[in-house]
């Protein structure tokens, strides 16, 4: 897909997108193939086509497929939202959680844990997370208003995040027993393991809706490169653009966090690394960054399964371990530019 591509830039862009798509395909298959339970994919597929339920099909459909699909969906959501937020804020340090949706989505899930609803209904956790993200978006609008500038948005996001953090800490503090607290903490670390296809079907339409809203704002993000006045003089209604970007991010990231917990740094690192490949054009970066996010999350989730450790590392731990040093490097580079 080319968004406002010039003819000259067409061939390399198609090539890069094609390469990433091929990489995602390979990672997806790897993600299906790798795991603790033995799985022979051709046999399992054969059984599924033949309508048989065997241990092989159960492993494929109930263990591996949700994990790989979620890796794809969550990765794309984080990547595309990160690019959108960096474009909106015109700041390479912005990330999808900047408007507060990921913190409150996590809080929503924590509330479900705290009151013990998680066991009552399989979809209670993601539903709680989504409720949290919706709440954050409404609160953001009450705090910042429709005409809010970038700084107000960031401040509102920071305050919502810290409030969500405080309530999460309160829930941990008041946890009825250490095991409940541990369960919450583990969930917060972020993981794709042991999710079900039901959860995938719940969040997929929300995420795809969010992606569309974000991808469609590509021209507005390009125009914002020239600042808000110039963007308005090019015919963009910035109030609507902000609404579309925030709603899109809330849908994509809110539902991602609701199923997987917080997976940090993906939405921050991926757009940053891929930006030069699209000539620093924020509109074109959206799709590229979504694809890159999907590839990174799939790869990281494969890595946690391959690491020879006594317990499987949580995905959020791996991404933070990769991401934080990257941030150090970025700050060092920014410093030398000034």
């Amino acid at each position: 897909m080319m968004i406002f591509g010039s003819q000259r830039g067409l061939a390399p862009a198609v090539l890069t997108h094609g390469t990433i798509l091929g990489g995602i395909g390979a990672l997806f298959v790897l993600s299906l193939a790798i795991g603790y339970a033995a799985l022979d994919i051709p046999t399992a597929l054969n059984d599924i086509v033949g309508g048989r339920t065997t241990p092989q099909t159960v492993v494929l459909v109930e263990l591996r497929l949700p994990r790989a699909l979620l890796g794809l969906l969550v990765g794309f959501s984080l990547g595309v939202s990160g690019a959108a937020m960096q474009g909106l804020m015109r700041n390479p340090l912005a990330e999808p959680g900047i408007i507060g949706v990921s913190g409150t989505a996590a809080l929503g899930a924590v509330v479900v844990f705290y009151f013990g609803w998680a066991g009552a209904l399989t979809l209670a956790l993601p539903l709680g997370g989504i409720a949290g993200a919706v709440f954050a978006t409404l609160l953001l609008y009450v705090l910042a208003g429709r005409g809010a500038g970038t700084t107000t948005l960031i401040l509102a996001g920071v305050s919502i995040n810290s409030f969500a953090g405080a309530l999460t800490a309160l829930a941990l503090n008041l946890a009825p027993n250490p095991y409940a607290a541990l369960e919450i903490v583990y969930w917060l670390l972020g993981s794709l393991a042991d999710r079900s296809l039901d959860q995938v079907w719940l969040v997929m339409p929300l995420m795809v809706g969010g992606w569309l809203m974000l991808l469609l704002s590509a021209p507005a993000l390009d125009a914002l490169t020239l600042g808000e006045d110039a963007a308005r003089s090019l015919g963009f209604d910035l109030g609507r653009v902000r609404l579309q970007l925030i709603a899109g991010t809330a849908l994509a990231v809110g539902s991602a966090v609701a199923v997987t917990g917080a997976i940090g740094f993906v939405g921050f690192v991926v757009p940053h690394v891929l930006r030069p490949l699209v000539g620093h054009r924020p509109g074109r970066l959206l799709l590229m960054s979504g694809l890159g996010g999907a590839a990174l999350v799939l790869a990281a989730d494969i890595a946690v399964r391959l690491l020879p450790l006594r317990v499987e590392l949580k995905l959020g731990v791996i991404t933070a371990l990769i991401g934080a040093p990257f941030l150090f490097h970025l700050i060092y580079r920014l410093r030398s530019e000034i």
Binding site: R90, T225, L226, G227, D229, A230, R275, G279, H280
Partner: peptide, 12 residues
Amino acid sequence: YLAQDGPVHWPM
């Protein structure tokens, strides 16, 4: 419209 000292946020 051409702004005075208009910003360019990304090195396109």
